[in-house]
Structure formats: C-alpha cells, structure tokens
C-alpha cells in the first residue's frame, strides 16, 4: 500500500477539497457536508473544502459562548485516532502532502534527529492554543478566539486567505497585519519543508499531536517480525520521522508512511490492522489484506 501513498494522498486531498470551481468564484461551499469533519488538517475556509477542519471546528465550538468543550469533535478524533492513528498524517492529510511535495524540491536536506525536543512543542500547541485559550480567554459575551487558527495555522493562509483574496477584492482590502504575520509563518513553513521533512507535522501540528497520542492503541499498527529481522538498521535510517521501528513500532512520531517496510531487505516489517497485538503472523497478514481492500475501495 505504501507504494501508492502519493496517489492516496492526492486522492484524499481532492476528496477533502471537492468544490474546485469555488476557487474561481471566490466563495465557499455552504452545504450541510460541512457539519462533518475531514480527517486531515484542511481549512474549512478553503473555497473548495468539502468538510470542516477538526481543529478549526473544535475551537469554534469551544470558543462559542454556549460551550467550553467539544464532545462532538473530541469523540470524532478519538474514533479516528483508534481506527487509524497517525496513518491519517501519512496518507490523508492535505497539508502533510503539501510539505512532502515541497520536500521533493532538490536541495541539500537536513536531518531533524537533533531537534527531537521540538516534537513536544506540538502537544503544547494542542493543549494551550486549541484546548485552553479558546475556552477560557473569552471576551465579555463569553466568546473566545480560535487561537491556533488565528495566530499559527499556515493552512488557513494557504487555502483560505490567498485564494480568496486573489478572487475577491473586498477580502483583498481586508488583509491586515494578521495576514502579514501568518503569511510569514506560511513562508517559513514552506522554506523549512524544503530543507526538513514535514517540519510542521513534527513540531507544531495539534492534530498530529492528538493522533500521536493514539498511535499506541491504534488498530493500524506497524509489526516487526523478530524472526526475520537481521538488525541491519536500514529501517531506522530510512525513517524520515526519526523512529526506529524495531524498537518502538508504534512510536508517537510514526506516520505509517511505510518507508521502513520498503527499506527492509528481509520483509520483516509490515502494516497490521486489527485489535490487540496480533501474535499470529498469518492471521495478521490476512487482516491486513482485507483492510487494504477496504481502504482502497
């Protein structure tokens, strides 16, 4: 499956942003489809967006005067976290794909191994900018700002502000200091993505942070067959998320991209989908097979 990852990413991005003609019209899709969230980080103010962004929706609910926590979105994310975990980052997230494409620009590439402590930053972003500030830093009528969307999210600028301001003169006139700030963030993320592999996913993305917490209990797992493994270390070297799959197959940083599977000379690493740890190898392969069929529809 990991061989078709690029195609799956492209397909997921297209499905997440189905209403392409809106780019020219400079409007938004306003149908009921937007009640439901998409799995990846995809701004719902993107003209083409077919669903809501889970992080944006969470802040919208939490920031409204009626609620200070969103069971709807949290439940949805737990469900996705258990069903797929960070497989979503590797296969379904449009912004992850965007960063990967940028990384294909041929330049000198830098390793992020030494920057490991930065990976904890995303949990702080999730807790502070998504959960706490929008819920508790409220104005006189009980409304909070969507802090992550407003001050940090580069996807909103890429998919929302830029195409809308190009198509709509009123919005162009509204561009202010906030746009300058967020545009600089987007440019930094773009520049960093060329040099590093998925810097935003590793260090800042609150959605990735949430799914990361569920990687260990996710039904979608990495499986290493100790009998086949020759400890050559090729998988760890191939991993662009700095994970050693032989030691921690379900590490929080693993986005299930499958590069280790392709790097393994003895086919000791594989995807596994199912409950529990799946000691039985034959059974595991079987469940994976059926899952593959389901997924690729």
């Amino acid at each position: 499956m990991s061989r078709f990852r690029g195609w799956i990413q492209a397909g997921a991005t297209l499905l997440t942003n189905l209403h392409l003609p809106n780019f020219l019209k400079g409007g938004l899709y306003q149908g009921t489809g937007k009640t439901v969230c998409v799995p990846g980080l995809n701004c719902y103010s993107c003209p083409a967006a077919s669903g809501a962004c889970p992080i944006g929706a969470f802040q919208a609910v939490v920031g409204s005067s009626k609620f200070s926590f969103s069971y709807y979105i949290t439940g949805f994310l737990i469900l996705l976290g258990v069903l797929l975990g960070r497989f979503i980052c590797g296969f379904l997230c449009p912004f992850g794909w965007f960063q990967e494409l940028l990384h294909k620009i041929p330049t000198k590439k830098l390793s992020t191994k030494r920057l490991k402590p930065l990976t904890y930053l995303k949990y702080a972003v999730l807790l502070v900018m998504v959960f706490l500030l929008p819920a508790f830093l409220v104005n006189d009528v009980g409304m909070g700002d969507p802090f992550f969307c407003k001050y940090l999210c580069p996807q909103g600028v890429l998919e929302g502000a830029i195409p809308l301001s190009l198509a709509n003169s009123g919005i162009r006139a509204a561009l202010g200091k906030l746009f300058t700030w967020k545009f600089s963030i987007l440019l930094s993320v773009i520049a960093l993505s060329v040099l590093f592999y998925r810097p935003f996913c590793k260090w800042l993305c609150p959605l990735g942070a949430f799914y990361a917490l569920f990687n260990r209990v996710s039904l979608f797992q990495m499986k290493v067959d100790k009998n086949k493994c020759v400890s050559c270390g090729k998988c760890a070297r191939a991993c662009k998320m700095d994970v050693d799959v032989t030691k921690t197959p379900n590490h929080t940083e693993c986005i299930r991209c499958g590069m280790c599977i392709r790097a393994c000379p003895t086919k000791a690493v594989c995807f596994r989908y199912g409950f529990g740890d799946g000691k039985d190898k034959a059974k595991a392969a079987e469940t994976l097979q059926t899952n593959n069929n389901n997924r690729e529809e």
Partner: peptide, 28 residues
Amino acid sequence: MLCFGVWRGEAATVLSKAIKLCLECVGI
C-alpha cells in the same frame, strides 16, 4: 462522546461556523 456532542447541538455550531468565512481564522 460524538453522539452526546451532536445531541447537545455542537454539530449545528460547527456547521454555522464552517459555511461562513471566519475572517480571523484564515488570517485576514
């Protein structure tokens, strides 16, 4: 949790926000 959230009207809030351009959200 998902069902409880929908029951207490969170889904409607999500929709009402998602179909309108949230100027502050996209950084305008």
